[in-house]
Every structure is written in C-alpha cells, then in structure tokens.
C-alpha cells in the first residue's frame, strides 16, 4: 500500500497537474469533503443497493440455470449461445442499449445482471460436475437417497466453484453498476457523483469517488468471504490442514 502511494505521489509530482493526476493527499482531502457532503451517504446507499440487487439476481438466475445445465445437456445446449453472446458483448454497448429500455435507476442493475450472470452460471455448471464420480457410485451402491446425495455430496463438492464464481461476480457487479451509473445518471449514485465531478473538471473528486467504490467493493468482498468461509465450514469442514491425529 505504501509502495503504491509512493509511486502515485512520484507520478503526480512528475505530471505536475492536479487536473490530470492529483496527488494522493489531494484525493484524500476531496474524499474528506465528500464524506461531509449532503449526497455522499445517499449515493453510497443507492449504489450499494443496486449492486446487491444485481448480485442477488445474478446469483438466483446463474445458480438455477447453471445447475440445470450441469444435469441436463438440453438446458446447456439452449443456454450456450446466449451465454457466449452475452460474454462477447461489450459492457458499454449493453449499458447504452439498456438506456433505451429501462429507467435510469435500473440500467446499472440490468447491465450488471447480464454481465455477472454468466460468471455464476459457468461456476454452477462446473460445480454440478465437481462431485467425484467414485463417491457418487459408492453412494448409489448403498442406495443413499438422491436428496441426501445432493445436499451431502454434490453441494459440498460444488461449493469451492460456486464461491469463487460468486466472488468474481460480486466484483464485476460493482464495476458494471458504477459504469452504468456514469452513463445513465440516476439519482443517488456513486457513478453520477463521479460523472458530475468529471464535468466540473474536479479530478481529485473523481479519484475520491473511485476510491470510495474500491473500498466498498473490497468491503463487500471481505464480508462475502466471511460468509463463504462459514458456509463452507458448515458443509465441508475442510478448512483445517490435514493433521493425521489418528496416526498410530
């Protein structure tokens, strides 16, 4: 962190223009002013809600369709062109199109769902196959009920893939929501604040909004990591390193 700040400070000193690259302390000062401003916390809450909304929709659609694709090749064949198409579509094109279809508050959410959903879909589909075939064979030989196989064998095997995909999707949701806000300009949004600051040529304030976005993204990823660890421990209980306590 200190090294990053030092590089930033050095680069800003070389550029010598806070319009192009402000110094770290200038961005910090702008952030301090923002924190006391009237619209800051509303913008934080608005963007946070949009990100969580987009993430929740992506999670529901991605898990549902991904799991179905993992089990049924017909669903996979149906979803495949759609997923490939969405992956290849540039984010900005998607946001611009969404601006024709949705009110400004929903444009960032719709765009983020479309971008994050394929990430979760892929991890759910891969996770659906993750259970070791030998273990499934063992369970079937012992006539273990299908629901028990699902909850105690397939879900724990899929969790690492799901958590990894969901974490990536969460980061992506932040990026796309803020990008959508910059273009769609909804009320109470980090992206709107960023765009307003850009139009007023207040580069340190643009940096301050960007720093706020990064911090919030890091914070939600951190809490998601905690939740994932707890869930993982509940299902798998494998966080501990192997310690062959029973070795005789």
């Amino acid at each position: 962190m200190a090294a990053f700040l030092a590089v930033w400070q050095l680069a800003a000193a070389l550029v010598k223009s806070n319009l192009i690259l402000p110094r770290p302390w200038e961005a910090g000062l702008a952030l301090w002013h923002l924190l006391g401003g009237a619209g800051f916390w509303g913008a934080v809450a608005g963007t946070m809600l949009r990100v969580l909304e987009a993430f929740a929709f992506s999670l529901c659609f991605g898990l549902g369709s991904g799991a179905l694709s993992g089990f049924y090749p017909e669903v996979k064949a149906f979803m495949s062109p759609f997923i490939t198409g969405v992956r290849a579509t540039p984010v900005l094109a998607l946001i611009l199109l969404a601006m024709f279809w949705f009110p400004s508050t929903q444009v960032p959410v719709f765009s983020a769902v479309l971008m994050a959903f394929p990430v979760i879909y892929t991890s759910a589909e891969t996770g659906g196959h993750a259970a070791e075939q030998r273990l499934v064979q063992m369970a079937e030989l012992f006539h273990v009920p299908k629901t028990t196989i699902f909850w105690r064998l397939r879900v724990p095997s899929a969790l690492p893939y799901l958590f990894s995909g969901a974490k990536n999707a969460l980061g992506l949701s932040w990026k796309v929501v803020v990008a959508g806000e910059v273009l769609a300009q909804p009320r109470m949004a980090l992206g709107t604040g960023m765009q307003d600051a850009r139009l007023s040529l207040e580069t340190p304030t643009v940096f301050a909004w960007a720093i706020t976005t990064i911090l919030l993204c890091g914070l939600t990823e951190y809490f998601f990591g905690l939740l994932a660890t707890k869930l993982s421990a509940k299902f798998r209980q494998m966080e501990e390193a192997p310690d062959r306590r029973g070795e005789q």
């Binding site: 030998r134 063992m138 369970a139 028990t148 105690r152 064998l153 724990p156 798998r236």
Partner: peptide, 27 residues
C-alpha cells in the same frame, strides 16, 4: 442387497467417521 468395500476407501472428506457411516446408511 450388496455392500461393497472398494479398493480405495471412498470416504467423504468433509464428514466425520461417524457421519460417513450415517451417510452410507441413510437409506
């Protein structure tokens, strides 16, 4: 009705010894 002790243990790594038995006997 068959039971099978496979060449490799085929145990569920995230379950305790007791729960591995409980899983296999859940039917």
């Amino acid at each position: 009705r068959f039971s099978y002790c496979f060449q490799e243990p085929r145990l569920l790594g995230w379950l305790s010894a007791e729960d591995n038995l409980r899983f296999a006997l859940s039917s």
